[in-house]
């Protein structure tokens, strides 16, 4: 059987796509969090890191396009699978259902779509620097000098952005849902790729829980620090 056709047309193939794209996106959110946490090392460190990423040029666009493709695959496969799955159960049970299934596992499509909506907003906010953050400040004009060069003042953009309670609240809700999504998703990713057996399953479950909690704490710490005035 043609591998590409199997990947896109069979239930197992689509789950490979979900898990594979999920793995790359998981890698991205881990890396992004580690990068963001440099905010606690002061403006110079964060701005130098941001400038380094911006100066990657074509390479930056390769990374962006790969990530965009992964988001497209992940969401596309999720929607197709969800529609198929609903068709397979035409009538719901009167006595309840989905016995033994965790809330996270039953709501992946919803948490996922909310996260996707947040990602669009987040990109408009900090990457496009569109006026979507309810502040009178213009993020696009925030510059600072670093080693004699004029660069974007990412540090101030973050502080000003998160000083808006609504913006920070949306951020906290979205990263909490991301953590919830991954609380099921990380372990399920190993399962869908066939990388699980009796010996490894306990470690995989623990890794999923630890990773999703670590992401929640890492991401939420930034708006919290801005609110508490620890980062200003």
């Amino acid at each position: 059987m043609n591998i590409l056709r199997a990947l896109f047309q069979t239930t197992l193939g689509r789950k490979y796509l979900m898990a594979g794209s999920g793995l790359i996106l998981f890698g991205f959110v881990v890396g992004h969090m580690v990068g963001n946490l440099q905010i606690f090392l002061g403006p110079a460190v964060l701005n130098r890191y941001a400038h380094f990423l911006q100066s990657l040029g074509e390479l930056l666009w390769v990374v962006r396009l790969v990530l965009l493709a992964m988001v497209g695959l992940h969401i596309g496969a999720a929607i197709l699978l969800t529609l198929e799955n609903r068709r397979a159960r035409p009538l719901a049970y009167e006595g309840g259902g989905a016995y033994g299934a965790s809330l996270a596992s039953r709501t992946m499509i919803y948490t996922g779509l909310i996260i996707a909506a947040f990602v669009v907003y987040h990109l408009l906010h900090f990457t496009v620097r569109a006026p979507v953050d309810l502040t009178p400040h213009d993020l696009a004009t925030m510059k600072t000098t670093l080693d004699g060069k004029e660069v974007h003042d990412v540090y101030r953009m973050v502080v000003v952005g998160f000083q808006q309670p609504l913006v920070a609240a949306f951020y906290i809700v979205a990263v909490s849902l991301l953590s919830f999504h991954l609380g099921h998703g990380v372990a399920a990713m190993f399962q869908s790729l066939g990388l699980r057996n009796r010996a490894w399953n306990p470690a995989i479950q623990r890794f999923g829980q630890v990773a999703s909690w670590a992401l929640a704490i890492g991401y939420v710490s930034i708006p919290l620090a801005v609110w508490l005035g620890l980062v200003k």
Binding site: T10, T11, L12, R14, K15, L81, E84, N85, R87, A88, R89, A98, Y99, G100, A101, S102, S105, R106, M108, H184, A187, A188, Q191, S192
Partner: peptide, 21 residues
């Protein structure tokens, strides 16, 4: 797997309901 898909069964979301029942 082909016969399973053709019959119209859904995909696995790893909820663990099957194992539980």
């Amino acid at each position: 797997v082909q016969a399973m898909d053709e019959a119209g069964f859904g995909a696995c979301t790893v909820t663990g309901s099957c194992e539980a029942v």
